[in-house]
């Protein structure tokens, strides 16, 4: 069983990503956080296998979340994927530098995201 946390402030995008993940099989469950705050609160409550995060969010943004996860010994093993519309590669590069495994640019194809997820989860 793989548990994925989706951090994204747009409800439709969250639903979309969730659908893509659930499409990958019964082995996958997706939990949603609509703000960075909510993600921070959910982290200690669940054993997540993967975090998918947006960058541009109110309160805590994606880069801060990546930094938080990657600097905490309890969570730093969790792979992270950035899903964002950022055109400027600057923020995506920063996300990778902070320890994210990959990024997917919106709009994306379902297969594209599924491929990146599968790769991030493979040992």
């Amino acid at each position: 069983m793989k548990s994925v946390l989706i951090v994204e402030d747009s409800a439709t995008t969250r639903a979309m990503i969730k659908a893509v993940i659930e499409d990958m099989g019964e082995d996958f469950t997706a939990l949603e956080a609509n703000t960075g705050f909510e993600a921070l609160r959910m982290l200690p409550q669940e054993q997540f296998d993967l975090i998918i995060t947006d960058i541009n969010m109110p309160d805590v943004n994606g880069l801060e979340l990546i930094n938080f996860v990657k600097s905490n010994p309890n969570y730093q093993h969790i792979p992270m994927i950035i899903v964002t519309t950022e055109r400027s590669s600057a923020d995506k590069e920063r996300g990778l530098a902070l320890g994210a495994s990959a990024y997917v640019t919106k709009p994306f194809k379902a297969e594209e995201l599924q491929e990146v997820i599968a790769k991030a989860l493979s040992p």
Binding site: D9, S10, T13, N56, M57, P58
Partner: peptide, 17 residues
């Protein structure tokens, strides 16, 4: 906040084609 609103419009409209 304005930037983010339009940014999200762009994101979801792309997702919906």
């Amino acid at each position: 906040a304005l930037f983010r609103a339009i940014h999200t419009v762009k994101g979801i409209s792309g997702l919906f084609g």
